[in-house]
Structures are given as C-alpha cells and as structure tokens.
Nucleic acid binder design. Structure first.
Lengths: 202, 202
DNA sequence: AGAGAATGCTACACATGCGTAGTAAATGGA
DNA sequence: TCCATTTACTACGCATGTGTAGCATTCTCT
C-alpha cells in the first residue's frame, strides 16, 4: 500500500477577482441575514463560499474593509429606496397626505428587499467600529431630514424629539413587518398612523 | 539559589459560595454595562472578580445559567420599578393624566438605576437563547399590559399596533435618556408627549 | 493542634478565529 | 507545447475562550 497520501481539498472553481469580491459580499450578506452580525467572520464567509481563508484575504484586507465594501454596495441601494419612499418633495403637503403615501411606500420597500433591510434594521452591536459609526451616521442623517420635515409641517413642535420618535417607530415597525408580514399589513399600519396623525392637526 | 519556583498566584480572599455567586453576578452586570453583551464570558467574569475560571464553574454550570441567575435577580427589581412607574391603577384617568405622571416617573426610574436599565434596553442580539427568549417574554408581557391600557383609554383604536408603538418609544427614549440625560430632560420629554397625547383626545 | 471540608489554583486538551509564508494547480498566450 | 500568471490550498503560529482533573491552601470545629 502506498503512503497515507492525505486527501487534497478539491479546487474550488477559479474565479476572477472582481467576481470573487461580489461573491464574498453576497456571502457576507447571506450570513448576516441568516445568523445575524455575530455570525460574520472571515472564516464563516470563506466557508459560505466554499473556499479557504487566504482567498478572502486576497480579495479584502480583513473583515472591516469587507464589511465597509458591503455597505458601499448596499448603502446607495437603501438610501435611494428610502428617499424614494419618503416623499420629500411633498413638504408643502399636509401631514395626513404625507403619512398616507409614506407608510404604504415604506411597507412595500422593506418587503421588496428584505435582506437589505433586515441587515440595516437589525441592531449592529458587534460589528467593527468603522461599520457601526457609519450606520449611525446614516441614521443621524435620516433623522435630520425627518426633523426638517417635522419642523416644516408642525412649526412650534419639538422637532428633534419628534424626529427621534418617528425614526424609532419606523425602525420598530420595519422589523415587525419583516418578521410578520401577514399580521402587519400596509393597510393596517396606514390606518393606525392615520388615526394618530389625523388627530394632531385638526 | 533555589529552583526556579514559578510564582504561584496569590490566593484570592476566600468567600463562601452564596456571596461568591452574588459577586459573580455583579461582575457580569458590570461587564455588560461597560463592554456590552459581547464582553461577557466566563473568562471575563473571572478576571473581573480577580479569580480563576474554575471558581466560576464552581458557582454556576456555565455562562447560560449564570446569566439566567442574573436575570432572576434583576427581573424582580426591574418589573417592580416599571409597574411602580406606570400608574396601572389610573386606568380610569385621562390619557393626558397618565402621560403626565408616567413620563417623569419613567425618566426618574431609568436614571435611578442606569446599570439595570442599560442592560435591559441594550438590544441583546448575542446572548444565549435562554436569555434572549426570556427578555422577549418580559417585553411581550409588558406590551400586553400596555395594550390593555390603550384599549381601555382609546376604545376603537388598534390597541395592538399602538402598544407596539408605545413600547418602541419607551425603549428608544429610555436609551436616549441614559445616553444623554442633559439633553433629554423629564420636562422636555413630558412636554413632547403632552403635545402628542393632548391632541388625540379633544 | 490536627483532621477534614471548603475553597482556590495549575495545567491540560480542545475548539474557533486570525493572519501569513510557502506551495500547488489551473489557465491563457507565445 | 510549454511557460508565466493568476488563483487556490496547506500549514503554521498566535490569541482567546471552554471545560475538567488533580493538587494546594485555608478555615473551622473538635
């Protein structure tokens, strides 16, 4: 009998760098969606793609840069979707009109791209500082926009506090819709929002 | 000269089991408050107390049971504080009255015991399933109470959705108050809440 | 003082994850 | 066909965390 000859791992299909990068980002997003941010590691990503760690290091300088690249890719998408759904141009409109259009739009938005939005709405407590700061930055920016809308529509109100409240609600109900789409339909949420907003401005 | 005689670690003060358990729970809470749930490990707890890991294993069967015990200890405290602050007996009162009493009471509550409330409000995405499920259970129970309050005070409203909204707001502003007590005073938040609630019931 | 119980420590084996240096295979062009 | 380039793999050393077996120390009670 010949020497032990330990099995050599079969070569994964060879893939050009650019494509491999995309593939790795997809894998990271899949893991985040499936296991949460805790599950993301160079090792897990490599395994998800069916490849060894050095391959990942060949494409990115580490987990931080990889996740940053993932954000670069998803951010444009998310921000675009969001500002498309929030009718910014309707500043002159009535609060009721804004809500009646925004709530169903947001509802459709998260369900249209659940993976992206779960990754964003899920609290990233662990992720590298670079990433956490960045997501917080985006959130702050969105809150600033909300604050301006509130100030325009409800002069005299505590716009900062209300913007915090609105964002917290969007955040929470976004997660709720993703978790139980059946139970929290666009109609139901719109009706509830209408009931609240409707009472504010007689 | 004598043999190398590697230094032996000085004995930590000997402490009876019951006391050691309390000490370990305190340490775990301290770590959660300082480093978040990610920082909690048998090792970190042992280090925090100035003791070796086997000592921790002598007191608890692992991290899960330890954290469960920590919850056992904090839960009573938190629930008591919460139901003390939420004037449940005031079901007959007006919404405005409830808010005007509840908001300052809750504000004072979290600031009176920030360590407990930071540990509860900080999203525990990581913690062992046992713990996560339990905190979610408590949250659900509190939401049920809120739902009953809402239903009693605003008949005809979508009590379930509103309870979700209220809890999400309490959660978010709780964290905000803990993070920036100066900026979000009881007066300011009460005024904002009053403005919102006041408009609901003409 | 002395024995035994209670408490703490050392040391090991294991597991997972990181990051890198060196080597092997596949691929495309001369 | 053969070589250079690109891509992938193996193997190592490091770090941190787990859980346990066995030894050392201290305390308490007689």
């Amino acid at each position: 009998m010949s020497a032990p000859a330990r099995k050599r791992r079969p070569y994964a299909p060879r893939v050009p760098m650019a494509e491999r990068r995309e593939q790795l980002l997809d894998a990271a997003l899949t893991i985040i969606d499936r296991d949460g941010y805790d599950g993301v590691s160079i090792d897990a990503i490599a395994r998800e793609v069916g490849v060894t760690r050095p391959v990942v290091y060949g494409a990115f300088d580490g987990l931080g840069p990889l996740l940053t690249a993932l954000l670069d890719r998803q951010q444009q998408r998310a921000i675009t979707q969001l500002y498309g759904a929030l009718p910014l141009t309707a500043l002159a409109s009535t609060p009721l009109g804004i809500v009646e259009r925004a709530v169903p739009a947001l509802h459709a938005m998260v369900l249209a791209d659940p993976v992206t939005w779960r990754a964003i709405l899920r609290s990233p407590a662990n992720v590298p500082d670079v990433v956490r700061e960045r997501i917080e930055g985006d959130r702050t920016r969105v809150r600033g926009t909300l604050q301006m809308m509130v100030a325009a529509v409800l002069p005299g109100a505590d716009a900062e506090v209300l913007a915090h409240a609105v964002l917290a609600l969007l955040d929470h109900f976004g997660q709720l819709v993703l978790a139980e789409p059946e139970q929290f339909s666009a109609e139901r949420l719109t009706a509830a929002a209408r009931a609240m907003i409707g009472a504010w401005i007689p």
